[in-house]
Design a binder for these strands. Structure first.
Lengths: 171, 171
DNA sequence: CCTAACCTTTACGTGAACGGGAAGGTTTGG
DNA sequence: CCAAACCTTCCCGTTCACGTAAAGGTTAGG
């Protein structure tokens, strides 16, 4: 096996690489989100490429998705459980047990997906509302451009049932 | 005038109605997210239906979307600007100005949508990853059920193995 | 008019998610 | 071998988003 010595990074380099601060990275370790791949002889934290991936993943969940560290921890715990089950799977010879391990893993993934999709659904509902307003506005612009009188459609206080405006929702 | 005096609610009723606490509602006022529609003679806060809508909207952004109150404030400021512009629009007679007001409003809505869509994209990317893993697992289950050898398809993205190592968080 | 239930403001407390500094050990180039 | 530049573990400080309690005013029912 061609062993390409995987260069390990110290915390400041990791910080520069991930856009986090050393303090934040240590804090994430403190709350159990990730442990460095290794420690130097003098106890320096040393991180590998997977650690970087994981930290970028965490940052994405935090900044982009707006998850709390607790929620992120839950998602990552599932990841870890997956990894552990992979080991169990490898060391198992019994097809029945193997099948059980696999279906358990699938169940966990499904729960993750469900959790994520719920959040997406909520966000999309908000987008729909926004785009209803947008098409309403756009139709007024169309009226103006056509020299027409404003149609003066009553503001849809009642939620749903927006009669589609003439313009297509962008996107 | 058929003035069907819209019942105003006191803070505890609003809390029950929105699932927030009185403290939280006062706090949201403190940070400028909403002001009660009125005050009683003795300075009791009194809320109307729109206040309820707004509070539910805030709660949705907070719980479902995971926005910070600062971000929510930004989105609501846009909402307020929209409302003010509506007034400006009504009082304007110049089609050019009216068009400008409308397109400004559309721009704001688009920014809201963009902000929401970014979050969705991030979440969807995570779902894609999860479903890749799922189908991978499912194919192994199929192999087992068919009595085949595990195909051992290499995992597309090498991920970290269980990061244990950290026995105690802190000592 | 009384009083219980509600409300007010003020203010200190709390958990999450870090920031920042002190005191001291580790690495590395010269 | 030595000093600068990192790093370590405490540990206290801060902001956000409220919780909670105190001290007192308001409202509705009897």
């Amino acid at each position: 096996m061609t062993d390409v010595a995987p260069r390990l990074l110290r915390i400041q380099e990791v910080a520069a690489e991930t856009g986090l601060t050393p303090r934040t990275i240590r804090y994430y370790e403190e709350v159990g989100l990730l442990a460095p791949a290794a420690r130097s002889e003098g106890a320096y934290r040393l991180y590998d490429g997977e650690d970087l991936d994981r930290l970028r993943f965490i940052r994405g969940l935090r900044d982009d998705a707006g998850f709390s560290l607790a929620e992120i921890g839950q998602l990552l715990e599932d990841e870890d459980a997956r990894a552990r089950n992979r080991d169990r799977y490898r060391s198992s010879r019994d097809p029945v047990e193997r099948r059980q391990i696999l279906t358990d893993a699938i169940d966990r993934v499904d729960r993750q997906v469900t959790s994520l999709r719920q959040k997406i659904d909520r966000l999309e509902a908000m987008i729909v509302e926004a785009e209803e307003r947008r098409s309403h506005l756009a139709s007024h612009v169309d009226d103006l451009d056509a020299g027409r009188e404003p149609t003066h459609t009553h503001d849809p206080r009642p939620r749903r049932s927006a009669s589609r405006g003439g313009t297509e929702p962008r996107g």
